[in-house]
Computed example of a mutant assay.
Amino acid sequence: MRFRTTDGDDAWLVHLRPDGFGLDTSNPAADTADATVRGTAADLLLLVYGRLAYGAEALAHQGDEHLLAHWFAGSAF
């Protein structure tokens, strides 16, 4: 799953594993993600902390909807 900023050139690629998740630092901008969420850096931070729903207008997402739902259901702080 990729998180990509719209107010910069930053991207983070996260792999879901049976024991949790891991950050892939090799090439986060590569087009290998099953799902991508785009937004400003501030909105992505709010999203990760559960303060903004991934269906919010401020965010764009594409790809595997089941993966997105699984990620956000299981990653609440």
Rank of each mutant, 00 (worst) to 15 (best):
R2K: 11
F3G: 00
T6A: 01
T6W: 00
G8D: 06
G8E: 04
W12C: 09
L13V: 05
L13F: 07
L13M: 07
V14H: 08
H15Q: 05
H15T: 04
L16Y: 06
P18K: 02
P18F: 01
G22L: 03
L23I: 08
D24A: 03
D24S: 03
S26C: 04
S26Q: 05
N27F: 02
A29M: 04
T32Y: 04
T32S: 07
T32I: 07
A35Y: 06
A35P: 10
T36Y: 07
V37H: 01
V37Q: 01
G39E: 01
G39R: 00
G39C: 06
T40G: 13
A41V: 03
A41P: 03
A42M: 14
A42Q: 15
D43M: 10
L44W: 04
L44F: 07
L44N: 00
L44M: 11
L46F: 12
L47T: 06
V48W: 14
Y49S: 15
R51I: 06
R51M: 09
A53W: 08
A53F: 08
Y54M: 14
A56N: 13
E57M: 07
E57S: 08
A60N: 04
H61Y: 14
G63H: 11
G63S: 11
D64A: 14
D64H: 14
H66R: 13
L68D: 09
W71E: 04
F72G: 01
F72Q: 04
F72V: 06
F72H: 09
A73M: 15
G74V: 12
G74E: 15
A76N: 10
